[in-house]
Design a protein around this nucleic acid. Structure first.
Length: 881
RNA sequence: GGGGAAUUAGCUCAAUUGGGAGAGCGCCGGCUUUGCAAGCCGGAGGUUACCGGUUCGAUCCCGGUAUUCUCCA
């Protein structure tokens, strides 16, 4: 059975049994900071299970894309070595939100697996069941569903068969369907059986029964409406159905492997020599999907996971003698296999290719750098007559320069060197401990538990900026922040990049300043000053008026609408590969991050600014449309980030016929309200991501005023008007250059004249000429050095034994310089730096330099004469020695 | 979140223990030569990322900030 057929059958089976079909949610979890990647089908339904959101449907089915790499579930290291570990995989699942429970879930699962008509038709005799040891109920149901199972139900403890969402919250027993792949796959241990970790008894489907709610004291209370969450790994099931030994031999992977064979001109084998093929086949899927979902390689968080996956794949490609870049050529096949089910990878393929290719190229650079360092290290080891590269060095190459240790090993072998792997491991372990220690105190934000006390707060702030309402609840966060919750509110809570509103909540005896507005799920929290003594439980139920700071909010609205214009203008100017990668909408500025590969040119930036201003002048209407079904919105061509909540209804912001975007934020009524749009900066955020900061309205006007004032001041200084500003400046600069050159020339002449004069007047001691002069004030050190240079240009100078000392005052400091002719250094050992140090010491100074030229400073100006007089004395001393 | 590194001309990179900021490519001008490639000479271009400290003196040493790379979580 083809994989697409298997997936299709699953979705159809449950759809025809009242389950709503949900498309896969994004690999980037929405509103869930505790999760690096979406790693199970239930992620997108978490809110329903927690009862935070209600929807009309009680049953759902989905094929969910998942990643397990980095974080708690980390399969990265195993990928390629086993038949069944993946970074990216698909999870098929059916869900019940307080509707059916164990009985139906088990019956469905059994029927789907064993029925040849509606289901997969798996042979019953090869199937086994596991349950939680204390879950008698499931045991009875399984027996009832099929009496032949009686002896094939195995009980396991909490570790294997009890599931929980976190420390607290929903939890319950689970039951797994196990398939026996036969003797051939057994590990051979005497203990081998159901539950063994080897490849014989593999878990195909896990049914989770959410039955309890674990509260903070650890007590488990029965849930009023128990739920079901199931997950089946598509890749495994396909391996079984296609009767192949490994997931990699299914139609989900084989075409990718064939393509690698073609590119590398090497043959795949299922054994150890096939590792690189499997790693690449797995990783290219992960890369394609991650990047399509907007995760771009970077050096932190999930972007870093993607970067590591890419590099690992690139390394394995190199083992097959492929020459970089090559990975991006594999996305074709991945898209062929999965593009129908997940259209986003098809839509973003060209962007994905670009990202992969440029990342491969940058890895290549990293390797080159590392190679150089390796050569250095290796030659040092050889020079020391040693045979082993120390672990510290391997670690440094890896830690600082990203040079993989396995590559170090290969390189070392070529030079007949060994590497100290255990030393490397030790260093790595030490780093791990350092990191863990540092992040120990970093606890995840706890939820307030408010959900049970307060229901959804009505937001009236799209239309009104003030309203009368009542105080519903007061909540103090663990860190001591105080929040008010109102029955309804005009305050916009921070979301979608738009900052929270500020303002006042007031009543006759009460006047509270709202410092910020946040939200938790659908509860809007108003942050108020915590030192206000009137804030206590007594004000609960009080009728108040809530007023948003109007000026601030209006500035925010201008910036938000401008952000939409910017997004659209960028796509028109640069291309469809531009996607939003984050944004900030504040009262004083807006910041917009987007995917793009080059710095924007000055021309592009001014074009962009012009385009947006033109939209403003066109006075386009900004319309918000509420409660549009997502599907419809997308059909209208609305821009949306993948991973918007599917199935739900959304709000769409339409600006004329120009821009259409999903958005919950607040906007101006027309574009002309924005007034002026000005780009302030364009910078890089990460590779492939650019950032534009801009200002609007009054802020932009202020900037223009400031700029004009600066120009006028400049023109004033240049004694000209703005028209001739540039001409005047150019002339001035040209003039300055000419004068500088002329000055240099004159100074040179002067200096060489002075040098000749001083050289002629030089005194002599024991066959060595010496010069000691106080030059008085000089402009800069350059002049002093020039003079010293001028001596060298006198032909007789370098033929003579000459030492000179010059002192000058530059600004407030006294500089001493000593020079020595080359042969004086060579034949008489009269080193300028040495002599200088001795001289300077006489006036509390110090200095240094080269043997022919040295400079230093003097602290005591009264002793300058003494210093100059001492030169012959010191020379004499040196000549004697 | 924690560690390690890097940042010098438009680009790629130098600068011997702290002692006058350089090369190659590119750019501009001139010359030479006319099959092309090029060659020769000259020139412009730098707040050595930013801020502070130590020092007579900092590209170099120390501290902080920013950005990028890299490893760990």
């Amino acid at each position: 059975m083809k994989s697409s057929e298997t997936r299709e059958k699953f979705l159809k089976y449950f759809q025809s049994r009242g389950h709503q079909l949900f498309p896969s949610s994004s690999l980037v979890p929405q509103d869930d900071p505790s999760l690096l990647f979406t790693n199970a089908g239930m992620n997108q339904f978490k809110k329903f299970f927690l009862g935070l959101e209600k929807r009309d449907y009680k049953r759902a089915v989905s094929a969910q894309k998942c990643m397990r790499a980095g974080g708690k579930h980390n399969d990265l290291e195993n990928v390629g070595l086993t038949a069944r570990h993946h970074t990216f995989f698909e999870m098929l699942g059916n869900f019940s939100f307080g509707d059916y429970f164990k009985e139906e879930a088990i019956a469905y699962a059994w029927e789907f697996f064993t029925s040849a008509k509606d289901g997969l038709g798996l042979p019953k005799d090869r199937l086994y069941i596991t349950i939680y040891e204390k879950d008698e109920e499931s045991f009875q149901i399984w027996k009832k569903v099929d009496s032949t199972l009686k002896d094939k139900i195995f009980r396991f403890g909490e570790k294997d068969n009890f599931w929980s969402m976190g420390e607290t919250g929903p939890c319950g027993p689970c039951s797994e369907l196990i398939f026996d792949r036969g003797e051939k796959f057994a590990c051979g241990k005497p203990t081998c059986g159901v539950g063994c970790d080897c490849d014989r008894f593999i878990e195909l489907w896990n049914l989770v029964f959410m039955q309890f709610n674990k509260n903070e004291s650890g007590k488990m209370e029965p849930l009023p409406a128990p739920s079901v969450d199931t997950g089946m790994g598509l890749e495994r099931v396909c391996a079984v159905l296609q009767n192949v030994d490994s997931n990699y031999e299914t139609d989900l992977f084989l075409p990718i492997i064939s393509k690698i064979e073609k590119l590398s001109k090497k043959k795949y084998s299922s054994g150890e020599s096939g590792v690189s093929f499997r790693v690449m086949a797995d990783h290219i899927r992960a890369l394609t999907f991650c990047i399509a979902d907007g995760v771009i390689p970077s050096n932190e968080g999930r972007g870093y996971v993607v970067r590591r996956i890419l590099r690992r794949a690139a390394r394995h490609g190199k083992l097959l003698n492929l020459s970089s870049p090559f990975l991006y050529q594999l996305t074709d096949v991945a898209v062929d296999i999965l593009g129908k089910q997940y259209p986003e990878i098809k839509a973003k393929k060209s962007q994905v290719d670009l990202v992969i290719k440029s990342e491969e190229e940058s890895f290549e650079k990293t390797l080159d750098k590392g190679l150089e360092l390796f050569e250095k290290v290796a030659s040092q080891v050889i020079k020391q007559g040693k045979k082993v590269i120390p672990g510290e060095e391997i670690f440094k190459l890896h830690d600082t320069y990203g040079f993989p240790p396995d590559l170090t090993q290969v390189m070392a072998k070529e030079k007949n060197l060994e590497i100290d792997l255990s030393g490397f491991e030790k260093e790595l372990q030490a780093q791990r401990e350092r990191s863990q220690k540092a992040s120990k105190f970093d606890t995840l934000p706890k939820t307030s538990g408010l959900g049970s006390k307060v229901k959804k707060v009505e937001f009236v702030g799209y239309e009104n900026l003030e309203t009368d309402t009542t105080i519903e609840e007061i909540w103090e966060s663990p860190s001591g922040k105080k929040f008010l919750i109102l029955q309804k509110t005009p305050f916009y809570a921070e979301s979608g990049g738009q900052v929270g509103d500020t303002g006042k909540i007031a009543q006759e005896q009460l006047n509270l300043e709202v410092l910020d507005t946040q939200k938790e799920n659908e509860i809007i929290l108003h942050l108020i000053e915590s030192n206000n003594s009137k804030v206590d439980k007594k004000i609960k139920g009080l009728e108040v008026s809530a007023k948003v700071d109007k000026t601030r909010r209006k500035a925010i609205m201008k910036n938000h609408t401008a952000t939409h214009l910017l997004h659209k203008a960028l796509r028109e100017l640069l291309g469809e590969h531009v996607h939003q990668a984050g944004s900030l909408v504040a009262p004083d500025r807006l910041r917009f991050d987007f995917s793009h590969f080059k710095e924007l040119t000055d021309e592009e930036l001014s074009q962009l600014e012009f385009d947006i201003n033109q939209r403003i002048w066109e006075n386009m209407e900004v319309i918000s449309i509420f409660d549009v079904p997502l599907k419809e919105a997308l059909a209208m061509g609305a821009m949306a980030l993948f991973g918007e909540k599917y199935g739900g209804k959304v709000r769409v912001i339409k600006i004329g016929d120009y821009s259409l975007e999903l958005c919950g934020g607040t906007h101006t009524k027309t574009t002309s309200e924005i007034g002026i749009f000005r780009i302030v900066s364009e910078t890089g955020v990460a590779s492939g991501v650019r950032r534009i900061e801009a200002i609007t309205g009054e802020k932009a006007y202020q900037l223009m005023q400031e700029e004009r004032n600066k120009l006028l001041q400049g023109a004033n200084l240049l004694k000209t008007d703005l028209d001739k500003y540039l001409d005047r400046l150019e002339t001035l600069l040209e003039e300055k250059r000419r004068i500088e050159n002329r000055l240099k020339e004159l100074e040179g002449d002067q200096a060489s004249g002075l040098a000749v004069k001083l050289f002629q007047e030089a005194k002599e001691i024991k066959g060595v000429k010496y010069i000691a002069v106080n030059l008085g004030h000089l402009e800069n050190k350059e002049q002093l050095l020039n003079l010293a240079d001028s001596f060298r240009k006198i032909p007789e100078f370098e033929k003579s034994y000459t030492v000179g000392t010059l002192v000058a005052q530059i600004n407030s400091s006294f500089i001493i310089l000593t020079f020595s002719s080359s042969i004086a250094v060579k034949d008489k050992n009269l080193k300028a730096d040495q002599i200088l140090r001795e001289l300077a010491a006489l006036a509390g100074g110090s200095g240094g330099g080269k043997s022919t030229l040295a400079t230093g400073g003097l602290k005591d100006p009264a002793k300058i004469d003494k210093v100059l007089e001492s030169l012959p004395v010191i020379l004499e001393k040196h000549l004697k020695a």
